[in-house]
Every structure is written in structure tokens, then in C-alpha cells.
């Protein structure tokens, strides 16, 4: 690896950002537990949340190791303030109805699946290759599952089609942020650690177009992409998530299971 000194802090930031995406989406999806429209889907959503939380744990643990400043994976996950979280806005969007949640899952999985595929095959970082090798295959399940649902809803009843179209209108303008590399991400891409996220756009777009075509959905034009999460600028909902997520650690500092 070249430029080790620079990459060290950039690597930490980039891994942390990935971990934040997975933690926040994992938490969001976990909110469905016990509330899904049917039992199989309750298990499916809980399993997807578990995958995401598992991936976030591996990423936070690695970030803590890179930082080497005495912070643990729990410290990173639970003891930062809102502006320090760099997750994209898409993952913090409220669950809404089932169509919103499953479409959000499709958008994210269609991005992370090729992302991890690239890392597993090409990254110069052995730990990330290991995390990616597993995550890629897990995200393939999320992708297939959510894609099948989006088709089922879009090509289903008038009501289901209306709901999923509303979800597309509400969420599509958050997807552009997936392809905005932070300076840390860009530095990692230049060093062959992570892919240049912009190069993943064609793959993402063709996956979504394929699913939308099957589901009788139109690909919307986005006039005003919503961004800011990568710089710590979040929507109001983020504070509510952190309130719930951090409650135990804030109330009982250093609590251990």
C-alpha cells in the first residue's frame, strides 16, 4: 500500500462511514420486528437487520483497530453525537409503509452488492476483503428479496402500485448521495482500498431499471438530489434514531452486557 500515513486516517473515516450506513439502516429495519405485514416478512426483515448490524459490527471493530486510540466498537457505535455520524440520508429515512422500507432496501442493496463485490475482488486491504466476501453474498439476498417485493407491489393491485410509486417519489432523490465520495472515500479509492463509488452508478442504475421495468414503475428524474449525511448534516429523524439507539449507553455509561 502506498501513502500509508494519509491512508491511515482516511481509511478510518471511510470504514466508519460504511459502518454508520449499516448501523443506521440495520436499526431502521429492526424497527419492523413484530410489526411486519406477515410472519415470513417479519422474519425476513429481522434477518436483514441482523445482517446489517453484523456487518456494522465488523466495520466498527476494524475502525476501532485502525484508530488505535482506545475506543471500542461500542464507543464508536453509541457514543458519538449526531454531527459525527456520516451515514447517507437514505438509510435514516423513516420506515413509512412496507413499500417505503422495501424500496429503501432495494436502493441500498443494489449499491452495496457491487460495492462489496469490488472490495472482495480488488481491495488491497485484507480485512476489508474478508468483510466484503461475506457481505457481498448476504447483500445478494437483500437485493433479490427486495427486488421481488418491489415487482410484486408495482405490478400488483392498484393500492400496492400506488404505495410503491409514492415510495419512489419520496426516496429516489436520496439515492444520488450513494455515489458521492467523501474525501476519505476518494483517498481510499485512489489507493485501491475501496472502489470509486461513481463507477458503481451504471450497475446500480441498470439493476433499478430492470426491477422497475418488471414492476411497471417509471424511473423518475431527480431535479434536486438530497445530500448532506456524509458531512454529518442529517434530517430531524436522525436525532430520534440516536435517542433510541444510545439510550442505554447514555443512561448507564459503560454498561456492558
Amino acid at each position: 500500500m502506498t501513502g500509508v500515513a494519509i491512508v491511515h486516517s482516511h481509511l478510518f473515516e471511510a470504514v466508519l462511514q460504511l459502518a454508520d450506513d449499516h448501523l443506521i439502516l440495520g436499526h431502521r429495519v429492526s424497527e419492523w420486528c413484530g410489526h411486519a405485514p406477515m410472519l415470513e416478512e417479519d422474519l425476513g426483515l429481522a434477518n436483514m437487520a441482523l445482517d446489517l448490524l453484523g456487518q456494522s459490527r465488523a466495520l466498527y471493530a476494524y475502525a476501532a483497530e485502525i484508530e488505535d486510540a482506545g475506543r471500542s466498537e461500542d464507543d464508536l457505535a453509541f457514543l458519538r453525537v449526531e454531527r459525527q455520524y456520516q451515514n447517507c440520508l437514505l438509510v435514516e429515512r423513516p420506515n413509512g409503509d412496507f413499500a417505503h422500507s422495501i424500496l429503501r432496501q432495494l436502493y441500498f442493496a443494489a449499491f452495496m452488492h457491487p460495492f462489496w463485490h469490488h472490495v472482495a475482488a480488488n481491495s488491497s486491504d485484507e480485512t476489508l476483503r474478508g468483510i466484503a466476501g461475506k457481505a457481498e453474498k448476504e447483500m445478494a439476498y437483500h437485493l433479490r428479496h427486495s427486488a421481488e417485493w418491489v415487482v410484486r407491489l408495482g405490478d400488483g393491485t392498484d393500492e400496492s402500485a400506488k404505495r410503491v410509486k409514492e415510495a419512489v417519489d419520496a426516496l429516489h432523490h436520496y439515492t444520488d448521495e450513494l455515489f458521492q465520495g467523501s474525501s476519505a472515500m476518494t483517498a481510499c479509492a485512489e489507493n485501491g482500498v475501496l472502489p470509486d463509488v461513481e463507477t458503481l452508478r451504471p450497475s446500480w442504475t441498470s439493476t433499478i431499471a430492470d426491477v422497475f421495468a418488471h414492476g411497471q414503475l417509471a424511473m423518475p428524474e431527480v431535479a434536486h438530489p438530497q445530500t448532506g449525511g456524509r458531512m454529518g448534516e442529517h434530517g430531524e429523524e436522525m436525532g430520534h434514531i440516536l435517542h433510541e439507539l444510545q439510550y442505554m449507553q447514555r443512561t448507564y455509561p459503560n454498561l456492558q452486557w
Binding site: 415470513e40 416478512e41 422474519l43 425476513g44 429481522a46 434477518n47 436483514m48 441482523l50 445482517d51 453484523g54 439476498y141 433479490r144 428479496h145
Partner: peptide, 13 residues
């Protein structure tokens, strides 16, 4: 296939 996700993380139904 009933569900891509089963009773544990490693199983489908």
C-alpha cells in the same frame, strides 16, 4: 421457496 429468510440467519424457508 416460502421465504428467503428463515428461523436463523443461516437458513431460508
Amino acid at each position: 421457496k416460502i421465504s428467503e429468510f428463515g428461523s436463523t440467519a443461516c437458513k431460508a424457508h
